[in-house]
Write a protein that binds this DNA or RNA. Structure first.
Lengths: 223, 223
DNA sequence: ACAAAAGTGTTTCTAATACACCCATGG
DNA sequence: CCATGGGTGTATTAGAAACACTTTTGT
């Protein structure tokens, strides 16, 4: 068969929350084009690898993230003919939501890797600014109707921690009382561990694990 | 640069409504593999073509659909290593919603092309059964919160026609009175042409064009 | 005792649902 | 005049929002 050859890559929008702010993982490019410019982590899909597997592998290689703790889903594909000056590249972008991770050690591929607050990210290499914007919008939208926010939390968490996720991602404050009532009333969203945890001063909070629910109905709303 | 070469294709989930039922456009494969089996229309992305442009071109080539009338958006990408036995192929699937179209003339590429009611589609070639399912779910979900349903209608339409779209896509009936109140109360969703149209017996219906609104808030709900 | 955070009760308002009812046309 | 579909009014109910208030801890 005759067909035009393409390179296929996966790029990752890895989001986490550090100190109450939404951060994205970026790597500084070590070679041309865009040498020295921040970019999303990513790399070539291997000949015998599914797209999802490639995303998981790149995630592990560049960040050391052990998969089960994080949420990984396909975002969209980007294939403008001139998006990479070297050759024709189609990038299948993926969105990763992870609990607070340590500062990444500059992995094998990237010269430098670091967390950046999403509202302080400057122009990125290639079309990665656009990909990041799409990933942020996806994450914000999915918090409304999916239990995805728990992917930002450690395995066990309190309602206040979960609320902090929503506030960081949406960039607005939520009423703690109504938020508590809402999330605890969705059947199967949170599983009570039976334990409580006291966070400095104040009444101890119930500790939850993510429940079996796959959707929040009716949704939480952003406004 | 050294990279594993892939073929990149676009596949199309083209939906329309005919006689009150949701239909998908399928082509019968003229060659191996899957010779004689129904498949989604699609083809290779050309060397200097954006993914979206490739989807538009394939749509025109295989169905004769003039673009502006229809809605086209990227759906997702599929790249399992064994999805095509001939070579490594990544398919970027697109979703097209079109007003009722004539029966397609078997185009240049496909041996045969025809509309099929979505609830009567048998096993498709490759992983197209899965792609179709994903496209249907996307279409159903987006009707809730976007003005997308108008893409299934001719340029001018009545509230009853719009309601028929929802009923066909969601597979359930809706209360005509509440539906009418709901869609006419969303600001900018419908533009009144000032004209009326009488459809057989009964009071003539107001004729609308799609309005500038980009979202339905609060959403319509499926249940 | 007091501050602070967790969690509950209550009121108010908005919007979905159900359905009675009126309107405008063809036969 | 009656059947048929277009469109409005209204009562009921569910849930969002606002916020007073109680509970349980650390200092």
């Amino acid at each position: 068969m005759d067909f035009p050859p393409f390179a296929v890559t996966v790029d990752l929008v890895v989001l986490t929350i550090r100190s109450g702010r939404l951060h994205v993982l970026l790597v500084r490019r070590g070679e041309e084009p865009w040498r020295g410019v921040w970019a999303l982590p990513g790399g070539f899909v291997r000949p015998d690898e599914d797209l999802h597997d490639a995303a998981e592998r790149e995630l592990a290689e560049e960040t050391g993230v052990h998969q089960p703790a994080a949420h990984l889903e396909q975002l969209a594909s980007y294939g403008a003919p001139d998006r990479d000056p070297r050759q024709r590249v189609v990038s299948v972008a993926h969105l990763v939501l992870a609990p607070d991770l340590p500062e990444p050690d500059a992995g094998t591929d990237a010269a430098e890797a670091a967390w950046h607050p999403v509202d302080e990210v400057a122009e990125l290499a290639f079309d990665h600014t656009r990909i990041l914007a799409d990933g942020l919008e996806r994450a914000r939208a999915k918090l409304e109707y999916s239990p995805l926010a728990t992917a930002f939390c450690p395995p066990e968490f309190t309602v206040a921690e979960l609320r902090a996720v929503y506030e960081a991602v949406w960039g607005r404050t939520l009423d703690p009382r109504n938020f508590h009532r809402k999330v605890t009333s969705v059947p199967g969203l949170l599983t009570d561990t039976g334990r409580r945890r006291t966070e400095g001063r104040g009444r101890p909070a119930t500790v939850y694990r993510p429940g079996p629910a796959t959707a929040i109905v009716p949704p939480l709303v952003r406004d």
